[in-house]
């Protein structure tokens, strides 16, 4: 147990270190001035430039510079945005939770709908209902996510006028960010028209969640179905049948858990796709998340923002992936054999 935790922590720290090195080197690789890329501050005169260079150790070796960069990162001093001049930490602090919120709802949709459907069609494999479920999940899975999002906007926002076109919540409501999750923030706030705001936020959420969730659900169905079918063909299921156990006993005692174990690591792989899809869909719905924010940064050539944004997104992905993998390692007794952690 302790060994596992230690092993995964080392993996985690090392990966983050590599990411930090990469983001640091971006300051040199981006066109323009290293000092400006690193800090986001444009010095007004030479004296200020000299002072800043000394402050950021740019006159010393790369190693020293990097360690100073690391301490700054830890201190929460991530530099300033070129365009808005606001501290990047504050901007990311708003954008990243918005993305996580959207991704979470889509994941919940995928889990709640995808896994039961997958079990159902896996248990009834090669029946008519299985063919229907499987065909529709393959079809959904093959949709490009941005196309699906555009289609939803076209139908529900423009034609039917059922859902708002863009944004997170109507500008009429002024929601104080506490957790960064809009629904939670509305519940926590002390507005008079809470339920109205909540409904409004929900209607903003629905379309992007469906767009991202549909693809995740489809892949969840497919993963689960495959895993259930594989589990059903294991010799120990045949052995359980020959011991005269009933179908329900076999399902609950032997299939359920064994089919779930291979799903978890595949879910870890899905997380990357999920975040990517969320970032794409955000830009279409003008959802104020990190994807949208990064695109704006690219348009504006806001190098400090890109540098830190990339670090933030990859840290998020790595954290989630390693956590799921570790969780999986802890609950699966037969994985004791595999000593080494892997992403």
């Amino acid at each position: 147990m302790i060994r596992i935790l230690a092993r995964y922590s080392i993996l985690f720290v090392l990966t983050l270190l590599v990411l930090a090195v990469m983001s640091f080197s971006l300051a040199y690789l981006f066109p323009g001035d290293v000092l400006e890329n690193l800090t986001g501050i444009v010095p007004a005169n030479d004296a200020q430039r000299m002072a800043l260079e000394r402050q950021f150790r740019l006159d010393q070796s790369y190693i020293v510079q990097f360690f100073y960069y690391l301490t700054n990162l830890f201190a929460g001093d991530w530099g300033y945005s070129f365009t808005s001049g606001i501290e990047l930490r504050d901007e990311i602090g708003v954008a990243l939770p918005a993305t996580i919120e959207l991704a979470t709802y889509s994941m919940v949709v995928a889990l709640v709908i995808g896994i039961p459907l997958g079990y159902y069609s896996g248990m009834r494999c090669y029946s008519t209902s299985d063919y229907i479920i499987n065909t529709s999940s393959i079809t959904t899975y093959s949709f490009p996510v941005f196309w699906l999002a555009l289609l939803l906007i076209l139908v529900f926002s423009l034609q039917l006028d059922k859902a708002p076109l863009s944004g997170r919540v109507s500008l009429l409501f002024n929601v104080e960010p506490v957790s960064g999750f809009i629904l939670l923030d509305i519940l926590l706030s002390d507005m008079q028209n809470k339920s109205l705001a909540f409904k409004d936020a929900l209607s903003h959420l629905t379309l992007p969640t469906i767009a991202i969730g549909a693809v995740s659900t489809a892949s969840m169905v497919r993963i689960t179905r495959r895993s259930v079918i594989d589990a059903r063909h294991q010799p120990y299921i045949a052995a359980a049948v020959s011991r005269g156990l009933s179908g329900w006993q076999i399902f609950f005692r032997h299939i359920l858990r064994n089919a779930l174990l291979p799903i978890l690591p595949l879910m870890a792989i899905q997380i990357t796709t999920l975040i990517t899809n969320t970032m794409i869909v955000e830009t279409l719905f003008s959802w104020p998340g990190i994807g949208n924010w990064l695109i704006q940064a690219i348009y504006q050539r806001d190098y400090p923002a890109l540098r830190v944004g990339m670090l933030a997104v990859s840290t998020l992905v790595i954290t989630l992936t390693i956590t799921v993998d570790m969780f999986n390692r802890l609950i699966d007794p037969s994985r004791e054999k595999y000593e080494h952690a892997a992403i």
Binding site: Q234, P235, Y236, R253, H254, R257, N258, S334
Partner: peptide, 10 residues
């Protein structure tokens, strides 16, 4: 084969 005839997760 006892190894494969037993459920690995129980």
């Amino acid at each position: 084969d006892p190894q494969t005839s037993l459920d690995p997760s129980a």
